[in-house]
């Protein structure tokens, strides 16, 4: 089985967000990039499936600019991925659909059975790549997935999908795309020798395919919300008084009382 994982570098969680001078995006000055949280889960999922399946291989793909894209691919190799391909991004690198199109043409050019993506990245929170990528490849996509298992005997992938109504149980043949919502409390970490070795690993490189006349989105504004001034603290002498005051504020001031 050829397992593909799609990885996105995102600003680390502790990043102090600042507006870039042109006002349209995050100021990249001094930002440190790491692998997106759900993508980290996707790597763990890919490696677990590989360990449970004879002859399976994991190929990591990432779309984006240098140098951060190459860095997350080396990190994926250090964790145990077998191959890595950097899909070099052009100017429109922050459009998730451009990413899906570019990844789709790169992945479609090679062998693949199962494509794993994180359900969304913590920076733009678009959650679009898995579904769009599946449509580029012409295969089904299962978003918001948990409990992914491969039943080799029946040649079926089984998984759950977490939706607003509950947990859906699915089974499907391959190939397909899975948008992973699973989170592990203790995903593996890379060992030092593997990290050192990954620095010399060969990273495949392809140029992002030029999209034809397609819909696209361009960032034109980036704003930080006014800092929350902190809660209005309710003064009270008895719990009853606290309750009455809060209910009155919710009804009359906030107007959210049902």
């Amino acid at each position: 089985m050829e397992i593909v994982v799609c990885l996105k570098p995102v600003p680390e969680a502790e990043t102090r967000l600042r507006v870039a001078p042109d006002g349209t995006r995050l100021d990249p000055e001094g930002v440190k990039y790491v692998l997106a949280g759900y993508d980290e889960s996707a790597v763990e999922q890919a490696l677990l499936l590989k360990e449970a399946t004879a002859g399976a291989r994991v190929h990591a793909y990432s779309y984006g600019p240098a140098p951060r894209t190459e860095e997350v691919l080396r990190a994926a190799i250090a964790l145990g991925c077998d191959a890595a391909t950097w899909v070099e991004a052009g100017a429109a690198s922050d459009d998730p659909i451009a990413a899906a199109r570019a990844l789709g043409s790169a992945i479609g050019a090679g062998p693949y059975d199962l494509v794993l993506c994180g359900k969304q990245a913590g920076d733009d929170e678009a959650g679009l790549v898995a579904a769009a990528l599946a449509d580029v490849l012409g295969v089904p996509e299962f978003g918001y997935a948990v409990n992914v298992r491969w039943d080799a005997g029946r040649a079926r992938l089984t998984l759950g999908r977490v939706t607003e109504s509950g947990l859906e149980s699915w089974e499907t043949p391959l190939p397909c795309v899975v948008g992973l919502q699973q989170a592990w409390n203790d995903p593996r970490t890379a060992k030092l020798p593997a990290i050192l070795k990954s620095r010399k690993a060969t990273i495949g490189r392809v140029a992002a395919a030029e999209a034809a006349e397609t819909g696209r989105t361009t960032p034109e504004g980036f704003a930080l919300p006014p800092p929350r001034i902190g809660a209005r603290m309710i003064e009270y002498k008895t719990p009853q008084e606290a309750a009455e005051k809060l209910v009155r504020l919710l009804r009359e001031e906030a107007k959210v009382f049902p």
Partner: peptide
């Protein structure tokens, strides 16, 4: 929702749409 977000992802390709979620 989970459905609506996936739907616009498909429409980005199938219907050539400019899309956004959330």
């Amino acid at each position: 929702t989970t459905f609506g977000r996936d739907l616009v992802g498909y429409l980005a390709i199938r219907w050539n749409a400019a899309v956004a979620t959330g």
